[in-house]
């Protein structure tokens, strides 16, 4: 029961959030300089007839709420209009770019968790030792290097000088794709790994002083059980939140890295669309980004429900 109430509340909040976001996004077009018809015309010559044609085609003479409702109705059905630049449906353009960004984001998240969680745990275990200080320092340095700078360094080192990885593109076959995406994923994951390391270290340190860990040791439980059943599971809660937020950030914000590695993903699409004042594409991307963040947060809530019985029974709210 508590689970349903919690989910219901979260879903309602997500819908409200998306509603606000969509209104703002739609407002973009209406508020753009030169009026919407100028934007929709792009760089084509504007005559009185073409402008009138566009006003009619896009129902620009209807009141704002009506236009918004129509646009929203189309958007919900996956129709975001037509790209001004390429004249293709916006949904197709995005669907075309999605796989690259999705695999890049997933790959980066995998790297982040696979490297960040163990390093954080080890650092906490060897608190104050050389290893801990090394890991903490490395995390700080990595955090300080911006992704695009790291991208260029990686490109130069591993693709140009050593020639281990391709310089450009996303690859065709699945294996090819992994090879192509390795360097971008590393560039994207580096700073996030550093964040997860610090988060994990703090969570594990917090845990190390807990009585239930000492009590588990006092009962002579095997070390594996203590680490997995006690330390990792309890430390996972805060890391889960960070992991989810990172996934959302990867999906929506990998533009620097995509640009540096010449990947045709959503980031590159966004940069292009803004440059070309391709408002329908920008609208769709903004809305998509918002939807992803909201969806990922819902997923985090679900994960909490699965991991933490206290949330499941409504004793605490996450």
């Amino acid at each position: 029961m508590a689970v349903l109430t919690l989910l219901g509340r979260r879903l309602a909040a997500a819908l409200v959030l998306l509603g606000v976001l969509s209104a703002l996004t739609f407002g973009l077009l209406a508020a753009s300089p030169g009026g919407p018809e100028q934007v929709l015309l792009g760089s084509r010559p504007s005559t009185a007839e073409t402008r009138a044609a566009i006003r009619a085609e896009y129902h620009l003479d209807d009141p704002f709420p009506v236009r918004y409702a129509r646009w929203l109705g189309d958007a919900v059905r996956g129709d975001f209009g037509v790209s001004i630049y390429s004249r293709e449906p916006v949904a197709d353009v995005i669907a075309d770019r999605m796989p690259v960004t999705a695999s890049l984001a997933g790959y980066a998240l995998l790297l982040t968790i696979a490297v960040g969680v163990p390093l954080g745990l080890v650092a906490a275990m060897r608190r104050g030792g050389a290893l801990d200080q090394g890991i903490t320092l490395a995390a700080l340095v990595t955090l300080a290097v911006p992704p695009f700078a790291l991208s260029i360094l990686l490109l130069y080192g591993f693709a140009v000088a050593l020639g281990w990885f391709p310089v450009f593109g996303a690859g065709e076959t699945p294996l090819d794709r992994i090879v192509h995406l390795t360097l971008p994923a590393v560039a994207l994951a580096a700073a996030q790994t550093a964040m997860v390391v610090r988060q994990m270290r703090a969570a594990a340190l917090d845990l190390a002083g807990q009585d239930f860990l000492t009590f588990a040791r006092a009962r002579g439980l095997p070390r594996r059980r203590i680490w997995l059943g006690y330390a990792l599971r309890n430390a996972a809660l805060p890391v889960l939140t960070v992991g989810g937020l990172l996934l959302a950030a990867n999906l929506t914000g990998s533009l620097f890295v995509e640009q540096a590695f010449g990947l045709h993903g959503l980031g590159a699409l966004l940069i292009g669309a803004i440059g070309q004042k391709d408002i329908p594409v920008v609208q769709a991307l903004v809305l998509l980004g918002g939807a992803i963040v909201v969806a990922v947060n819902l997923l985090i809530d679900l994960a909490y429900l699965a991991v933490d019985p206290r949330v499941r029974h409504g004793a605490v709210t996450s």
């Binding site: 239930f212 006092a218 006690y230 933490d308």
Partner: peptide
């Protein structure tokens, strides 16, 4: 580790902190 639990057990002060909440 072979002694703890099977020969010597330790019960601690705070019952609210001694058990794994999960």
């Amino acid at each position: 580790r072979s002694v703890r639990g099977s020969r010597v057990a330790l019960l601690m002060q705070d019952p609210f902190a001694m058990l794994n909440p999960l």
